[in-house]
Design a protein around this nucleic acid. Sequence first.
DNA 1: TTGTACGCGTTATCAT
DNA 2: ATGATAACGCGTACAA
Lengths: 329, 329
Amino acid sequence: MATIRDVAKHAGVSVATVSRMINDAGYVHEDTRKKIETAIRELRYTPNEVARSLYKRKSKLTGLLLPDITNPFFPELARGVEDEMQANRFRIIFGNSDENSKKEKEYIQTFVQNNVVGVIASTNHPDSDTYRKLEIPVVFLDRTADNRPSVYSDGREGGRMAAQEIVARGSRRITVMQGPGHIRPAQDRYQGAVEALSGSGISFNVIQTSSFSFTEAGTWARELFEKHPDTDGVIASNDIVATAVLHEALRLGKKVPEDVQIIGFDDVPLSSLLTPSLTTIRQPAYDMGKAAARLLIQLIENKDMTQKTIQMPVTFIERDTTRKVEHYG
Amino acid sequence: MATIRDVAKHAGVSVATVSRMINDAGYVHEDTRKKIETAIRELRYTPNEVARSLYKRKSKLTGLLLPDITNPFFPELARGVEDEMQANRFRIIFGNSDENSKKEKEYIQTFVQNNVVGVIASTNHPDSDTYRKLEIPVVFLDRTADNRPSVYSDGREGGRMAAQEIVARGSRRITVMQGPGHIRPAQDRYQGAVEALSGSGISFNVIQTSSFSFTEAGTWARELFEKHPDTDGVIASNDIVATAVLHEALRLGKKVPEDVQIIGFDDVPLSSLLTPSLTTIRQPAYDMGKAAARLLIQLIENKDMTQKTIQMPVTFIERDTTRKVEHYG
DNA sequence: TTGTACGCGTTATCAT
DNA sequence: ATGATAACGCGTACAA
């Protein structure tokens, strides 16, 4: 790899001049500029970002920490982040945390060891020292903490929405699937649903689940219909679980949505391709990712912002696992 | 951030001693070791990887370039890579290429500017200068190039398999969906299928598709049944397209697998959750990712390997979009 | 067993 | 308009 020295020698000037020209800081004569340009081209010189980073104590690197890229909600988020970063010439060091604090900590540590200028993280412990003590901007994505930069959607409202819509469509023996206890957004949705259901005076059952994995989802779906065979409405903690429930319901010969209605959460891409297609509460994942990246970049550049937390709207996506209503409410 | 200097001062020794202790290279007295350990703890010192990287001309950073993390096949790959890298304390700079050479080139360039020690890439142009001129090891993932390190599965054999299985199960008016022309694995599958079909003397139609996106998949599914309404067997270019075809077939009131059989490719996680669940040709994506990372790490450490290309087996996953047979062949 | 000093590739300061 | 040089934080000869 050619260095700035090589370029300087090749062009017959000093490294200082080359540096000035590259960063166009300070004067450099048109003629020397040309010479340097040629040298750069001929030697295929590109600045060493590591040396830059060492001197300036900041890089064009950014850290992205997500629970599990294998959960279909996160690729959308990640892509939104990446597109925005890429457009602004930032690069991303990526890691999966598995919602595990130790792993998070390790990642965050190596992020700072590599001089990243900012971090986007989806964590359940935004208030832990891991983040509190960080001297670079952090944006929490799909998670919140009071008064700290974050981009998330209103899970509670989403849960309420799901409950209202399923009740409005006639379900009366509802089962709510409560997502993993340690995952905040899952609990928000759950509470929203419970809130709305309690308010409406309709009784409901709860099935507790402990992960969002594809393989386990089937187990809970089976448990659901074993314990509560007369369920006529399921509010799932996300689309994966909803998909498993749908699959199981059909396997048991139930008609969806006639016998049982199902509402998911997230609106991951596959939801519309199921048969029947899945009614769900949509989070605008891609846009959330983009917004988070944009916010982080602003934080990196300005250091102070007025609008630090962005709550994105959730929307009811009516498809075929719920019945139609004319109008209600 | 504390530097090695701070630690040295705090412990009353020289930076060299601290360095030696950290990397345990050379002697260091037990007493001084203790003092240094305390200093490190108290100052919360962690080595600056950037300075390390600059001096050693190599980092613990690795580049991962995938077409689109939003395509459900890739998260599995990525996770495999990440798990293996993480276990070996390597970090990943991640980018989406969109199968676009310019983007690829930009990413690869910034990878080297950041001193990455190796690259894993899923590209259609492994022979381009972008990769040929790289001075660090590259492993091609889900793609191949003669004699260069790569991890992929036998798409051609997979295509053949799909054709044989669908024929063995009685389809006689088959439509093959030909994936995007510029994506190698898609063409391999296609050719494998065509090969087997031609060999069996069974006629077939072809529908050309130009991406693997969720949104467009539906369009081709519709086109398929408009142009070839009597199709009784579909070999899709991947599970996304297959899912769209399934969805469309059901929408048209066709019975699957009685009226039309469908075979996908990849075995992405959702396939088993569809109703009917999708018969497909499985690629062991997670393991492929792991294998690629393992191979890259060996390349980074050894520089010469005997076994440079790893072909993973594809397997026929019989589920419910195909009919049952007792035995055949 | 420990310390001094140089170099990794840049940028920025200060002369010239 | 340009050049010499210190500094960024670390690892390693080499000297002590």
